[in-house]
Design a binder for these strands. Sequence first.
DNA 1: GCCCACCTTAGACCTTTGGATGATGGTATT
DNA 2: AATACCATCATCCAAAGGTCTAAGGTGGGC
Lengths: 229, 229
Amino acid sequence: MVVETAQRLSHALIIDDHPLFCDALSMTLQSIPGVQSVKTVHLLQDGLDALSTLPQTDVVMLDLNLPDVSGLDGLVRLKKAAQDVPIIVVSSLADQRMIKAVLQAGAQGFVPKHSKRDVFLSAFAKVGAGERYHPDGYVDVPGSADDGSERKVAFDRLATLTNQQARILHLICEGKLNKQIAYDLSIAETTVKAHVTAIMRKLGVQSRTQAVLIAGQARFSNILPSEAS
Amino acid sequence: MVVETAQRLSHALIIDDHPLFCDALSMTLQSIPGVQSVKTVHLLQDGLDALSTLPQTDVVMLDLNLPDVSGLDGLVRLKKAAQDVPIIVVSSLADQRMIKAVLQAGAQGFVPKHSKRDVFLSAFAKVGAGERYHPDGYVDVPGSADDGSERKVAFDRLATLTNQQARILHLICEGKLNKQIAYDLSIAETTVKAHVTAIMRKLGVQSRTQAVLIAGQARFSNILPSEAS
DNA sequence: GCCCACCTTAGACCTTTGGATGATGGTATT
DNA sequence: AATACCATCATCCAAAGGTCTAAGGTGGGC
């Protein structure tokens, strides 16, 4: 057997927009025996690109709060782009619900951003061994069944969205009109409508309001106000 | 400490749809010296009616999950109907966020529904003394400023809604069409539209989708079964 | 009684949304 | 090359959403 079971993760990808943190995490990972390369990007899109150009990547450390995307959106899209690459989510928001949602969405591990070095190391080791990692305090009990199943359905459906569709759903979840979305993305309103139709078909709903609710169920976006005026 | 003012709450109102629980809570309250009457109703609407016919009511025990309404909707409306009557929320959902949201929305106390008798008693006593009550485990630290202030704004705006408008917003938050809402409430679609226009004006938004987002911020309805932030 | 706030409605009008059809070009797979 | 999927866009159309005017009813407060 050529398998060194202790460390199967050779090529890591870090997606995080905090420079200092990236450096520190990168160095931490590089100190692990068996790790051959650590690439760092600052946007989810760059991460998706990196995954296609570096297909040998075998673990991703993902920050949930990127300039690019927010909420579980990024995780869902990343998961879709690389089904079999384990993802360890690193987030500054680390309450029970968030952890649960993240693991339900298919991440292999969750590490609070403020954790000490050895926490990252043990998470990395555990995921490398094919297990899941979550913080000590976390227990997976209180998951009133319906919550879980409904959300899983929502995840499954959101995972079928293409990148552009996800972007558009994101803007819908900010309360924008098709016209505004078209302007933001520099495409025709007709195109937006086509995407919206496709989104609703995939989510199995009949109106954009219902699409927002599905997205909310899955914490797809950080439903926060955009009401500038 | 003040002694004779220790019990200023003579007339209590219980709003809860669980019969056995109502009985138990009613008996518990009646066992308190100084409590002269305890009225029980099963719907929020009945509670609102009771408040207007029994103006001497000086404390309300409110369950958040009524057939009538759900989420903080009921609390906001009750608060609006009786600004100065202290409200103690009794809920089976008792996580940090829910407690925080409830207290931010203006409740004087929060008691998990599964609490023992003496918890209800001490909550009642504390609120009677003009203080606020929350469970032992609860700490109001992580109040990430934006979360609080933005949500407070949302509460303020929601509090200006009339009953009918609140009902309609609730149905909007379930993804229903104006036509369906009209059918549900047995009114004309035109009327629904008029209300929707009024709601959006009060909330300061331009579309129903944005109204849903505001409602979500304030946990107005149970759109998000259990929220993370 | 009068005023005021709320709920109600009709009808006209315009905008937004959602969908159907069809067409083009790019890209990846086979 | 053929296939399939995606993104793009146009045109046309029907339905829903949203605004406005005008108006009738209720009930409470002064």
